[in-house]
Nucleic acid binder design. Structure first.
Lengths: 231, 231
DNA sequence: TACTTCATCTCGATC
DNA sequence: GATCGAGGTGAAGTA
């Protein structure tokens, strides 16, 4: 990895065009040829960048560019999409290179799939007397997250999202239409369950007779802890 | 901005829990207190990070941690969410600090908002005799990008995308269903306009009687230039 | 390899 | 501040 702190201006041409005026920035050149341009603020997203696979070529500045103070020009081109990033370097304040080696990578815990598992384990959260039929119940157009039965034995299809928006309601609607045409399983009611449900999604769901259910991940995990403590 | 290259292991606790095993990485400490941890590959997303507002505190390692080779511990805590990032530093290979100043920021060109503005200004691209009613026409389920009238005075709802795929057609379909239930504005026809329309989206749109319109951003901008030259 | 879905999404615009 | 939609989305899993 090569780290360069320099005054520079940058132009990007690809899906869109973008320009960075002259300022002091960090240029991070990774081992795979990719380049990130960071300022001293903002979040993790660089001001501009080029993703791998790409290649960097150093170009000699023209006379008028040299007169303008440009000491070097980097042209980074994407191997496939012809996107191009041009960095005009002025004063270079720091330049160092370091061998990092391959990273073992990030280990994650606590994401979406666990929500499904937790709801399946605590299916009573759907309401009194509900029982689990199965997770990932397969239909012709894809798997329903959870299929259950209510106290009267009627089928309940659950669509699960971390954040519930309109797309999820549309998806559940398609499942419900399909399943309600199948006399073996009809009638099927729908539950849209998420940690957070956007107002527009809630309105659409309720217009269509789909029940909305807010999930509390920590509370659900707490139920597990309670069980663990009990046994 | 402080740049540290060091052997380190990292733990994050917040929305999820995550762990990075011992390896050599770049730690980028920005002026606003935020921290990015980058490896020598991947894309622009760091392996782990803490977004501002947050604060870093250096903690003394316990004796057993010192024995294990830990020379310093950074605890970065988010000011609002109580997310926490712990970096255990082993061997430090590089450590430098640089004054970058405030960045003037990125100037973008060619995004959807400009497309909308351009199409509204050149509404005749929808067809002979079309007139603009308004941009961002509000409905109960969200704003229609452009509402126009055709030569006969009938309403035309335009959904605008840079890249047109099925989601956009679904969105426009919802608007059309809603608006066509309103006797004050019905009947409303639909136009799906984009710089690029995926074949599946085109088929779905045409099956539903929605007209597809390919937009040429450069040509539309050219129309502006022509006007500028004329006046 | 292409497609779908998720994300500690980020980021801006708007209410 | 909350919300909504777009992204040069990226990244991971699946068919």
């Amino acid at each position: 990895m090569r780290l360069v702190i320099a005054q520079c201006s940058v132009d990007y041409a690809g899906r869109l065009n973008a320009h960075l005026p002259l300022a002091t920035r960090l240029l991070m050149l990774k081992a795979d040829g990719s380049l990130l341009i960071h300022s001293d603020g903002g979040s993790y997203k660089p001001l501009n960048w080029m993703s791998p696979p790409c290649s960097l070529a150093e170009v000699s500045p023209e006379d008028d560019q040299t007169d303008a103070g440009i000491t070097a020009i980097w042209k980074v081109t994407h191997a496939k999409t012809a996107d191009e990033l041009t960095v005009n370097l002025y004063e270079v304040i720091h330049d160092s290179a370091h061998e990092l080696g391959i990273d073992p990578g990030l280990i994650k815990d606590g994401v979406e799939s666990q929500l499904q598992k937790l709801l399946a384990e605590h299916i009573h959260l759907l309401g009194e007397g509900h029982t689990l039929v199965r997770r990932e119940y397969m239909t012709a157009i894809g798997p329903v997250d959870i299929l259950a039965q209510d106290a009267s034995g009627k089928s309940v299809a659950v669509e699960l999202k971390r954040r519930g928006d309109i797309d999820g309601v549309e998806q559940l609607t398609r499942y419900l239409e399909l399943m309600n045409r199948d006399p073996h399983i009809a009638p099927v009611t729908g539950v849209f369950a998420a940690q957070e449900i956007k107002p527009q999604a809630r309105k659409l769901a309720e217009d269509r007779g789909i029940r909305c259910l807010l999930l509390d991940y920590d509370a659900m995990r707490g139920l597990d802890d309670t069980l663990t403590r009990l046994f």
